[in-house]
Amino acid sequence: MNFKALTATIALIAAAPVVALAGGADDDTLVLNGEVEMTTKAAAPAHMADTYVDEIISGWHFRADETQALQMDDFENQGMIFVDDGLATWETVEGSEGKSCASCHESPDSMKGVAATYPKWNEDAGELRTVQMQMNDCRVNRMGAAPWKYDAKVAINVEAMIASQSRGMPVDVQIDGPVKAAWEQGKELYYTRTGILELSCASCHEENYGNYIRADHLSQGQINGFPTYRLKNAKLNGVHSRFKGCVRDTRAETYSPGSEEFIALELYVKSRGNGLSVEGPSVRN
């Protein structure tokens, strides 16, 4: 065998997908406030059978012990301060109709289950809606108030308050029927290698989760923990803003928070976490 043939053989071996190391995620257990044991690892949903991911893993497992601990106790979880802000907004009357969220929905625990099933098809509107879109629909059409800018701080805080009502419940978004087209669009985006660096979501979060890229420990990019309190910027972060940051880091022209593309991507990525517990607001780096 000559040198070039040998090189080509090595190339073929090297080109095979690099399966992430099983040791990448730790084996800790996430128990919330010493009471609620969260499902942070689960069998991959059936729609991921064509990937080589057989276990879905919460981003919590890829963080340092100290960061993990912050999420285990609501008094340590800085995200819960913003949940309190969201709760205050929930009870604040705004708009021409003299209503607050609480005027119709009463107790926040009426929101239990919402974060687990959104983005979700709205039959009356004939569209796929994120939680923030639904909140704005209420504001405009029921309260007579101005809609919030997508991923605005106030919107994220209320979204986190709503998410917190579902903590511990399994993510279970629908992917077929009327949302099938959007789900397929989201999947297409997930695997599209964008930007000057030509990286897709999958390049890092499917092919390389568990590996370090410089100082960053790559997770599966699950969004069951959103809105997420990041130590990096000391506030709650929305899913679409996080997507935007990732796409930007591929040296690409990003999509905007609230865009059709990010709504579709949110549905697809959320569906890759079907079976994991809702963790929002989680704590990450």
Binding site: R193, V247, T254
Partner: peptide, 10 residues
């Protein structure tokens, strides 16, 4: 490239 960006500006 697909959606090439201007550096890291987005």
């Amino acid at each position: 490239f697909i959606r090439p960006g201007n550096g890291y500006t987005g």
